[in-house]
Amino acid sequence: MNGPVIEVADVAFSYPTGTMPVSGLSFTVGRGEVFGLLGPNGAGKTTTIKLLTTLLRPTRGRIRIAGLDTRREAVAIKGKLGVVPQDNNLDPALDVKGNLVFHGLFHGLGKREAVRRAEQWLEPLGLREKAREPVMRLSGGTKRKVMLAKAFLTEPDLLILDEPTSGLDQETRSFIWQQIVQHCRSHGTVLLSTHYPEEAKRLCDRVGVLRVGRLEETDQPAGEGIPAAGKIVALTPELRRTSTSGGTV
């Protein structure tokens, strides 16, 4: 497929309460690109990611992933995605390796292949010694690594990462950055949501800045009952990936 991997056209999403975290959102991401979604907390980044990963349906507009419509072809789309959500969603009933293997099985891999890939990811992520450790006993950084391994395990066409390095120490952040760049070299497209501008600068080809509210943009106070809306207010095509730890990556 030659078209963009992500096409978002005039998308809005509103909750039944009337809150509209995303409105008038439009952008595209091409194959092989690392696209950064920047913005402060509450800007609508996580909602945008849930829309892209088919977990939420747009109230208005259209989203296509690899040419597939998120409303009608959610199952096929999910088969192409590797996702690291903002919060850990590891299975507390399973150990580290079990989380990876079952993730593979749920994504249609055969048992042998799922085990092989889990083994393959344990080593580079430094999880070999913790393979049989219940995930509840892991530190925040290690849990994040397991989440990342899950996302990579299925060799997805599109990697969607929602603040993957939030709250992590510098060493783990650098490690995750390295994995993202390596993935991009071998597989392709990445959408990275972050509120660290320096992270976006290091990793992203382009950045979209998501701000809370059209109202904030026009500098008018929000009227009663008028929801805040998030939309991309700036796209910076000039940023190039520079380094993960000082050097060129």
Binding site: N89, L90, G108
Partner: peptide, 18 residues
């Protein structure tokens, strides 16, 4: 219950199944 509170449900919902 753990699926809800530990967000395991989210992982299952991201699997390519209906």
């Amino acid at each position: 219950l753990p699926g809800y509170y530990y967000r395991t449900l989210e992982g299952w919902l991201l699997a390519p199944v209906s």
